[in-house]
Design a protein around this nucleic acid. Structure first.
Lengths: 112, 112
DNA sequence: CTTCATATGTAGATCATCTACCTATAGTCC
DNA sequence: GGACTATAGGTAGATGATCTACATATGAAG
């Protein structure tokens, strides 16, 4: 049957966009690279699966928080490079502030 | 239009159950009291709305993580008091561990 | 007798995330 | 030539907790 425990909802809603924005704020990157970065930095704790990643990237484009252009990777492949925009940086800052506030609040509850 | 910004998804999925478990781990409490506790401790940053709270309490009952019985409040009202079970404490510990791992991972990404 | 705080619940919508699938190419090994 | 892996981008459909809004009831206060 291979029922696989399926660790549902590994990432809190809205967090993926924040992590993507943060990642491309360090420099333009393609989707595959973003996924690798997230996995590498978190030692595999977090992973951006394709089914979440690409829709999230599309949302960021639609909202104007990122731009994309096709270009060659160092290894000679075509890939879509995403870059953060000014509004993306604003959004990132806002999301991080929200996240930290909620995170602090949860921390306070768990300490009690 | 009154489009109301509606701060969607204030609480990450699954977190509410953890916060409820934590709250009733300090002593049996009724739903209204749980909501107040969460709001008070977090200075209003977090709030467990009825539409989220009561379904979450039902889920905890169904899973055996909590038990409930009707009793009188100090002010002479009928209320349903929820108490944590042994499996609830286990679940709480597991959730907290998960939360902290993810929290750390996100922190690492945001620091970079 | 009306209003407010307390107290419990339901109905329906939202929507990001997840699993699982498909396509394509460059490089390597046989 | 053929098979395979890593790289790269994407879609389809399901899930399901959370949210907004509503409905109900009662004790206390004015």
């Amino acid at each position: 049957m291979a029922t696989t425990k399926t660790p549902r909802q590994e990432l809190p809603n809205g967090t993926l966009e924040m992590l993507i924005l943060k990642t491309i704020s360090l420099g333009a990157m393609h989707g595959y690279g973003i996924a690798q970065h997230i996995q590498r930095v978190t030692d595999g704790v977090l992973s951006a699966e394709q089914g979440s990643l690409y829709p999230a990237l599309e949302r960021l484009l639609n909202k104007g928080h990122a731009t994309a252009k096709w270009a060659q990777t160092p290894t000679g492949r075509q890939a879509r490079f995403y870059a953060i925009t000014a509004s993306g940086r604003k959004q990132l800052a806002a999301r991080v502030a929200d996240y930290e506030q909620v995170s602090l609040a949860i921390g306070r509850l768990l300490e009690a």
